[in-house]
C-alpha cells in the first residue's frame, strides 16, 4: 500500500499532472515543499482568493515562488507552456477555471518532456484532459479517532502507467515530507496485534 503511494507520489518529472477538489492547493503546496529551486505559480488574472505566505511557510519557503497572472485562459496556458519548456524551473503549477482541451493538454505534456519539468494543473472538479499522466482528487478530511488536524484524503483517480488508489496522508512541516497515515480500520488491527 505504502509502496504503491510512494511509487507515484512525488509526481514524476517530465509529465503533466492534474489535481481537483477542495484540497488541490495544499496538494500543490506539498509538491512545492518536496522539490527544490524556483517554482512558478500561474493563475488567471488576480482573483479574490490568493495564497497567503503565512500559511505557505509550513510547506515551503515563500521566496521560492513566483506568481504569474494571465489575462485569459489562453494566456495561462501559454505561460505554462513557455515555462515548462524553459528548463529554468522544475515545477510549474497552474490554476485554471476552465477545462484543458485535448490539443492543449498534449502540448503541455510535450513541453514538460522537452523542458524536463513537472507540470501540475489545478482544475475545478470533474474536469481534466486525457493527456495528463495522473489526476488526483484531494480533500481535507476529519477523523474523529485521530487528533491530528492536518489530514488529507488523496485519491489518484487517473494514472496512465499504474494503478489508482486512495490514501490518507498528512504533511510533516518540520521534516517537509508527506506521511502516510494508516486508515482507521487498519490501525485498529495493528493496535490489536500489538496489544
Amino acid at each position: 500500500m505504502a509502496q504503491e503511494f510512494f511509487d507515484i507520489f512525488p509526481l514524476c518529472s517530465r509529465r503533466s499532472h492534474e489535481a481537483v477538489g477542495p484540497g488541490a492547493i495544499s496538494f500543490a503546496a506539498s509538491m512545492v515543499g518536496i522539490t527544490h529551486g524556483p517554482v512558478l505559480w500561474i493563475a488567471e488574472q488576480r482573483q479574490n482568493e490568493h495564497l497567503h505566505p503565512g500559511g505557505l511557510i509550513q510547506f515551503c519557503d515563500p521566496g521560492r515562488l513566483l506568481f504569474a497572472y494571465g489575462k485569459t485562459h489562453m494566456d495561462v496556458l501559454w505561460i505554462a507552456e513557455e515555462v515548462l519548456r524553459s528548463k529554468s524551473v522544475s515545477l510549474v503549477i497552474a490554476q485554471l477555471s476552465t477545462d484543458i482541451g485535448l490539443t492543449e493538454g498534449r502540448r503541455l505534456q510535450l513541453a514538460a518532456e522537452a523542458g524536463r519539468a513537472t507540470g501540475l494543473f489545478l482544475l475545478p472538479q470533474g474536469m481534466g484532459s486525457n493527456a495528463a499522466e495522473t489526476r488526483w482528487h484531494c480533500a481535507p478530511i476529519h477523523d474523529c479517532n485521530n487528533s491530528d488536524s492536518t489530514l488529507f484524503d488523496w485519491r489518484c483517480i487517473k494514472n496512465k502507467s499504474g494503478t489508482t488508489g486512495q490514501w490518507i496522508v498528512n504533511w510533516n512541516d518540520t521534516a517537509h515530507h508527506i506521511n502516510l497515515v494508516a486508515q482507521t480500520g487498519q490501525r485498529a488491527r495493528q493496535q490489536a496485534q500489538a496489544g
Binding site: 492547493i25 503546496a29 497567503h52 503565512g54 500559511g55 511557510i57 521566496g63
Partner: peptide, 11 residues
C-alpha cells in the same frame, strides 16, 4: 520569512 502564528494557506 517568519511564521506569524497559524495562518491559512489561502485567504
Amino acid at each position: 520569512w517568519h511564521p506569524a502564528g497559524e495562518r491559512p494557506l489561502s485567504i
